[in-house]
Design a binder for these strands. Structure first.
Lengths: 119, 119
DNA sequence: TCGTGGATGTAGACAATCTACACCTTGGGC
DNA sequence: GCCCAAGGTGTAGATTGTCTACATCCACGA
């Protein structure tokens, strides 16, 4: 595992969270795949790293669901890139995934940090 | 999907969190599989439900890793049941998984609720 | 010309969940 | 005596979303 050595703090993504992270990133504005992964990595202070083998299948998945649309464009560094944009259905999906995530965090907190009376 | 209809608020477990929830439950004291699943369900206010097809493979996994030990015993209702107990290695593993979970929650919060200046 | 970083993509392995089943026991209702 | 619900353990197989590892192309600077 060569890459893992370099980022000792990195952790693997939880299955099912990548879609939400991508949708959230796109809510700041259209972005291409590479940029999305850089953004997620940066905002999480290098804790989360999105592998290309997870990223691109996820983007294609989201597009197939109608949650994002894409078009090819030139980047600032004159490279061609596929820019993704959130659709209205994608925004609704994001809200739903945010609610689900909040519920999970609450539920797990209820187990990990239980109130002293609920034995 | 017959079962899903009955618990409209239920959500699927995130992959990789079940082991932590089991270890945490066992930290309150030895418990058998069925009891563990009831405990998780209760403490999460019925949001999390552990299916038997997830539960028992997980318990066998944890035992294989040396994080729990088991022995058969009679329950209060005079049923035979396999009671699991946390080992010292299991307690260390729990600490490590707690730390990982906290890191994940922090990292994802950094993306979902970003500070206004880190655009 | 050659390497590095930006950028997209796929194939196949892997792992943890889910659904759906099977089996056994206890205790209560009829 | 019989049946059924609830308690209890377990497996097989499908599904799904990661991961690793690879391939390809382009721009730019040394």
């Amino acid at each position: 595992m060569p890459k893992k050595e370099r980022y000792q703090n990195r952790i693997e993504l939880l299955q099912g969270t990548l879609d939400m992270l991508i949708l959230q990133t796109l809510q700041w504005g259209p972005q291409h795949g590479y940029g999305i992964s850089q953004s997620i990595q940066g905002r999480s202070r290098e804790i989360l790293q999105v592998e290309t083998g997870s990223l691109y299948p996820a983007l294609h998945r989201l597009e197939k669901q109608g949650w994002v649309t894409s078009h090819w464009k030139q980047t600032e560094s004159h490279q061609r890139a596929k820019y993704y944009r959130l659709t209205p259905a994608g925004k609704r999906q994001l809200l739903s995934e945010q609610a689900r995530w909040a519920q999970i965090v609450t539920a797990i907190a209820g187990i990990m940090n239980p109130a002293p009376d609920e034995g």
